[in-house]
Design a protein around this nucleic acid. Sequence first.
DNA 1: GTCATGCGCAACCACGTGGTTGCATTCCAT
DNA 2: ATGGAATGCAACCACGTGGTTGCGCATGAC
Lengths: 123, 123
Amino acid sequence: MASPRSQPSAPGKSGLRASLKKVSPVFAALGDETRLRIIAALCAGGARSIAQLTADTTITRQAVTKHLHVLAEAGLVRDVKQGRERRWEFEPSKVEQARRSLDAISRRWDEALARLKACVEAE
Amino acid sequence: MASPRSQPSAPGKSGLRASLKKVSPVFAALGDETRLRIIAALCAGGARSIAQLTADTTITRQAVTKHLHVLAEAGLVRDVKQGRERRWEFEPSKVEQARRSLDAISRRWDEALARLKACVEAE
DNA sequence: GTCATGCGCAACCACGTGGTTGCATTCCAT
DNA sequence: ATGGAATGCAACCACGTGGTTGCGCATGAC
């Protein structure tokens, strides 16, 4: 149950640069306020239709549709057809992946600081 | 010492949507592979000049300059002038902020799942 | 002083993107 | 069967963005 939010499954050191290519589209998809609000709505209220999501915003239904396609392309969201409706639901795996990337960056930075400190203290 | 990578300082629940507006530019800045590589280089090797950073890539110095300005605008990077050189260094605070936002999203999602589960079990 | 290095600024270009409007389509309901 | 609701598709537009080239300006090295 719940999403795997522990154990960064350390790619640190080696696989960092290799993983950057895979994560950058996720960050790009997250880099828009409207899309972040859509994600917030989806992961708080479960699956919602396009019309429902549009009601929360001031923009057009088609604009929301485009944003949903961008999010789906990045793997952040998934759609389930249901009659003439089409409900969209949050897909947490890519968010976890992005979080691990930020963890890797922070860890690398901390290591660099530790090396610097050790170098200074050895003086 | 080191960056504050523990205690999400829970804005969860209330401040999520309010914080989204502030974090989206950070995600947008992270949403480019070239910029991610620049960040990786900076947080691994400390402060580097534009010419040094350009040597690692295939693109022009001016392109790297533009990327650095985008990163600086997002607060992910800081520059220190030093003679005729201008060294750029990683600025970890915004990365931590972005990480906390992803934490908040994951947490909200987990809570939604827990509510759903409780609702089902009450049936 | 002179020269090369490191950088900034500005113009330019192709392309992506966020947004709109208009119309066609599908499917549930009456 | 007919109407309305939910959606899809396509064209269009303004603007941002990643990238280039060209030129000018400082500053450290000789």
